[in-house]
């Protein structure tokens, strides 16, 4: 504890030296391929959820293990910060750039700059929406549409024999690939059961506070809610709080389906407050480092690499929980 406070105090002291500098502190220093080690510039979305922090840690740890020098930046969920970070990596002449795009569109210009500088780009976790696929070498990540489908298919099976199932949806950050795709996959899967209806859908920005606030409003504006479908665990956890405050039992009165399977979510699943979680594996660091080495050495890599994922019911969560590190 005291170490953290010391760190905080040190941070305040450091801030004196930062007067007037906005955010981007990684503008100086040369990368470079002179000494043979690979330098990777990674522009992370932020740390908006437990999933993301596990993803960050996996990338940092596996870079160290693979002997790759990692330059890391946190965009705090802002596209302009990510573009700034990528530009600074281009200036620093890193060997490879990897990033998880905050939103799907608006990347062509900066990716073209990277291409002209002959720096290969790997997308992780989220895709970009661009017609020119030569702008990046490969896309490593989950299939979000598939995740949405898995969630929808479980609900369809669960709703067999029921006459009416009202679903409210807590979307992720508006415009983000996982939010768009998980919505799409879910909508596609529930077409199989006409009694399932999405009665309200709003963004909770992938955060607990957002999920709680939106769910509070949903509970008041929709008299009959049977199922909550949240695009990540954190929003689902926020929704649980809102449901409890309304005097209902999460997991029983209102069923909850989420995506991600981080530890707090798995705990709630094991406790019976969440009913079903579709896994979205954040530990893609080792795969990313392998791809980076191949790309830098000029080897061919597949255009799309999908991470391995599963789903969890309450029973499976109890068994898996002790092994969850994130």
């Amino acid at each position: 504890m005291s170490k953290r406070f010391l760190a905080a105090v040190a941070g305040v002291v450091l801030a004196v030296g930062l007067t007037g500098c906005g955010g981007d502190s990684s503008a100086s220093g040369g990368g470079g391929s002179d000494d043979g080690t690979i330098t990777m510039g990674f522009a992370q979305v932020g740390a908006e959820s437990g999933w993301r922090t596990a993803n960050t840690k996996s990338i940092q740890d596996s870079a160290k293990e693979a002997g790759i020098e990692l330059k890391f930046s946190d965009a705090q969920q802002k596209q302009e910060n990510q573009i700034k970070a990528i530009r600074s990596y281009i200036q620093q002449k890193v060997d490879v750039i990897a990033f998880s795009p905050v939103v799907e569109t608006g990347w062509d210009a900066v990716l073209l700059e990277a291409k002209r500088a002959n720096i290969p780009v790997i997308l992780t976790d989220r895709a970009v929406d661009s017609e020119d696929t030569s702008l990046y070498k490969t896309f490593l990540g989950s299939d979000f549409v598939e995740e949405g489908k898995k969630a929808g298919e479980w609900l369809v099976k669960e709703s067999a024999g029921k006459s009416e199932v009202n679903v409210v949806e807590l979307q992720g950050t508006t415009g983000a690939a996982p939010a768009i795709d998980r919505k799409e996959g879910f909508a596609e899967a529930i077409k199989a059961a006409p009694q399932i209806k999405v009665v309200a859908s709003q963004t909770g920005d992938f955060t607990r506070s957002g999920g709680k606030q939106v769910m509070e409003a949903f509970l008041k504006s929709n008299p009959k809610i049977d199922v909550v479908y949240a695009h990540n665990d954190d929003m689902g956890l926020g929704a649980i709080e809102a449901i409890e405050a309304a005097g209902k039992k999460p997991g029983v009165d209102i069923k909850i389906i989420t995506v991600d399977a981080v530890r707090d979510g798995m705990q709630a699943l094991a406790d019976g407050k969440i009913n079903f979680i579709v896994e979205c594996n954040p530990l893609l660091g080792p795969q990313l480092m392998d791809l980076a080495k191949k790309v830098v050495n000029g080897e061919q890599v597949p255009e799309r690499v999908v991470t391995e994922e599963t789903t969890f019911t309450q029973e499976q969560a109890k068994a898996e929980l002790p092994n969850r590190k994130y």
Partner: peptide, 10 residues
């Protein structure tokens, strides 16, 4: 309100 500290979003 959410019994959690979220340094990035709070």
């Amino acid at each position: 309100n959410v019994s959690a500290a979220d340094a990035n979003n709070a």
